[in-house]
Simulated scan of single mutants.
Amino acid sequence: MGVLLFKWFFTACMALHPFYVSVTEIRHNKAQQELEVSCRIFADDLENALKKQYKAPLDIIHPASKQKMDSLIAAYLGKHLLITIDGKPVKLQYLGYKIEEEAAWCFLAAEQVPAFKRAHVRNDILYDEHPNQINMIHVIVNEVRKSTKLDNPKMEADIVF
């Protein structure tokens, strides 16, 4: 049900673009004791943010160098998405991205993360580009999902289980 609702919401947003929204899902994998993070960002918005930050022509869909594009996206997300679990900063490892329809799906992970009670998320993805940017955050622990919405300039949220 949640996936269908997300797909409907994301499709509706694409049809209405320029409605500026990103969705970040943070899932705790209990068996592996890790966080699995995915960010869904409109590809054109992410590309424009990278062009502005790095002052270089870029093509996120057909990059001249996938490795260089991965490096730029990793650095961007490293500055604009920070997670703290039970008061301890989490070191996210960038895994890569893929383009699906109008969205760039970016994937990150953190190892050795035991079950937790509180996640603090700082997310200001695309805030410099869009004054009306909305960043949705979903945190899933033990199959319990909690969600919040950050409207620019609000960039921080605490999710308690």
Rank of each mutant, 00 (worst) to 15 (best):
70 D>L: 04
96 G>C: 05
160 V>G: 00
53 Q>M: 15
52 K>I: 15
134 I>A: 01
62 H>V: 03
127 Y>P: 01
31 A>N: 10
54 Y>Q: 11
58 L>I: 06
80 H>W: 07
77 L>P: 01
28 H>L: 04
76 Y>D: 05
91 K>F: 10
157 A>Q: 06
147 S>V: 06
3 V>T: 10
38 S>W: 09
45 D>P: 08
77 L>W: 06
48 N>H: 15
127 Y>V: 02
116 F>A: 13
93 Q>F: 03
10 F>R: 14
22 S>I: 04
93 Q>A: 06
81 L>P: 05
138 H>V: 10
58 L>F: 02
31 A>K: 15
119 A>F: 00
146 K>Y: 06
146 K>T: 05
116 F>I: 09
116 F>S: 05
7 K>L: 12
153 P>C: 14
57 P>C: 02
106 C>H: 07
87 G>Q: 02
123 N>R: 02
24 T>F: 03
135 N>E: 01
94 Y>S: 02
21 V>G: 03
92 L>C: 07
92 L>V: 08
110 A>F: 06
140 I>K: 11
115 A>H: 13
147 S>M: 05
51 K>Y: 01
85 I>R: 03
64 A>I: 14
31 A>P: 08
80 H>Q: 08
112 Q>P: 00
161 F>N: 06
19 F>C: 03
134 I>W: 02
127 Y>N: 09
27 R>V: 15
48 N>W: 04
22 S>R: 04
10 F>N: 08
43 A>Q: 10
8 W>M: 13
158 D>P: 02
53 Q>H: 13
65 S>N: 12
53 Q>Y: 09
133 Q>A: 05
93 Q>S: 11
36 E>K: 08
32 Q>T: 09
114 P>D: 15
147 S>E: 13
89 P>R: 06
133 Q>G: 06
34 E>S: 10
81 L>H: 06
133 Q>L: 14
157 A>D: 03
51 K>E: 09
70 D>T: 02
64 A>Y: 08
34 E>C: 12
4 L>M: 11
85 I>H: 01
3 V>R: 08
89 P>C: 03
79 K>T: 11
35 L>I: 09
36 E>A: 00
73 I>K: 09
117 K>T: 15
67 Q>I: 13
133 Q>P: 14
26 I>E: 05
89 P>E: 05
36 E>T: 10
79 K>A: 10
19 F>N: 02
100 E>L: 12
112 Q>M: 08
146 K>M: 09
88 K>E: 07
92 L>N: 01
36 E>F: 06
161 F>I: 11
12 A>K: 15
123 N>T: 04
64 A>R: 12
20 Y>K: 02
37 V>R: 04
36 E>C: 07
23 V>L: 07
115 A>C: 13
120 H>M: 05
152 N>T: 15
48 N>A: 13
8 W>T: 10
29 N>K: 13
73 I>F: 12
75 A>S: 10
17 H>L: 01
107 F>T: 11
5 L>N: 15
3 V>E: 13
160 V>K: 10
133 Q>C: 10
25 E>A: 08
74 A>N: 15
12 A>N: 11
70 D>Y: 07
129 E>S: 14
64 A>L: 12
110 A>M: 07
142 N>Q: 15
9 F>Q: 13
106 C>D: 00
37 V>Q: 06
68 K>E: 13
147 S>A: 12
7 K>P: 05
39 C>G: 00
5 L>A: 12
137 I>H: 00
121 V>K: 07
76 Y>G: 01
2 G>N: 09
13 C>N: 03
35 L>S: 05
9 F>T: 08
64 A>V: 11
151 D>W: 03
156 E>G: 00
